[in-house]
Simulated assay, not measured.
Amino acid sequence: MTSAMGAVGILAGGGPLPAKVAEAAHAQGRPVFILGFDGFAEPDVIGPWPHEMVRLGAAGHMLSLLRQHGCTDLVLIGPIRRPSLRSLRPDTEGARILTRLGRALFAGDDGLLAALVRILAQEGFAVRGAHEFLSHAVAQPGVLGTVQPDALAHADIRRGIDVVQALGRMDIGQGCVVQNGLVLAVEAMEGTDRMIARSGECHQPGEGGVLVKLLKPGQEKRADMPTIGPITVRTAHAAGLRGIAFEAAHTLMTDKDACILEADKAGIFLLAVDPDHFQP
């Protein structure tokens, strides 16, 4: 069903990235249609583009709209809180998809999203990663900005990589905060920014901690890639952190230039790392 002339359907959660994917697809000459999820997608972000707001449980309506607008490729982008089964109120097609999801409904986020990607492919759509459209939003290994991590920060990053990879194998979260070898916080359902704020309550004397944000081992890269933005940088600074390390080539930056500007202003480092080859 994939065609170079087909429209790109964007299944939009919160934040600015749905519009950035739309801009990039439009620049490639592709028609764009956005499905904004009620309670998550931001009207001001998706408003300039052809769009409809839909309930998460209205899968039949979603598929119908995507086909009506000639969508062949789909991008899932933007944070969404996992709803309870009771609150979903699925339509007939939604109930069928829930049945097809089966045990994945009770898995972690990656298990659920990977199953959803498979189902969308079975429905005839090509599911694309946001990074395929936003190549400029990912960073190659190295320091971004003017602040350099020192040896202690490198040791905390290595510790954080080990912790996040262990969490990821259990499909729990993508991030943690480490200070002087001590794990201050790990990410679960609350999301990165709330985890960072919580780490500030556990701040220890001495140099500030480091946020480490990585793709889960074996994660489906077409959904829920790690994301950082200027708000992440400001939240890290407010929590007393000294830097952010994130996975090179596999982390979306909502606004790379603004992230670097905020980090330099706050005096914290931004470091894109290859977790499989990082040595302190």
Rank of each mutant, 00 (worst) to 15 (best):
H203N: 12
G124K: 14
G124T: 09
L66Y: 02
A22D: 08
L112G: 01
V54K: 10
W49T: 01
R159D: 06
V183I: 15
G108Y: 13
N180W: 03
G191Y: 10
E201P: 00
R55G: 13
L270C: 07
Q279V: 15
V163A: 02
P141M: 05
G209E: 06
S64I: 00
P90D: 09
P83N: 09
D91W: 01
L215Y: 01
M225P: 14
K20D: 11
A95S: 13
A166T: 15
P226A: 06
K213D: 03
L134G: 12
R194N: 10
E93M: 11
I80T: 14
G206D: 08
H277M: 07
L74C: 11
L152M: 14
V32H: 08
D276W: 02
A223E: 01
V54N: 04
H154A: 13
Q122C: 07
S87H: 01
D255R: 05
I34T: 09
I244D: 04
S64D: 13
S87A: 14
M53L: 14
I46S: 04
G108Q: 10
A58H: 10
S64Y: 06
F40P: 01
G200I: 08
L98P: 01
T2W: 11
K20H: 12
P217K: 04
P230S: 08
G78V: 00
P83A: 09
S199L: 08
F40Y: 14
C71R: 06
G240T: 12
P217Q: 07
R118F: 03
A248G: 09
R198A: 15
A115C: 05
S3V: 09
L271R: 05
V273N: 02
I268F: 02
L184P: 05
D193N: 14
G111K: 03
Q219K: 10
Q148R: 15
G14H: 04
V164I: 08
L214N: 05
L270H: 08
G229K: 04
R100W: 04
R82F: 11
L17C: 02
A130M: 05
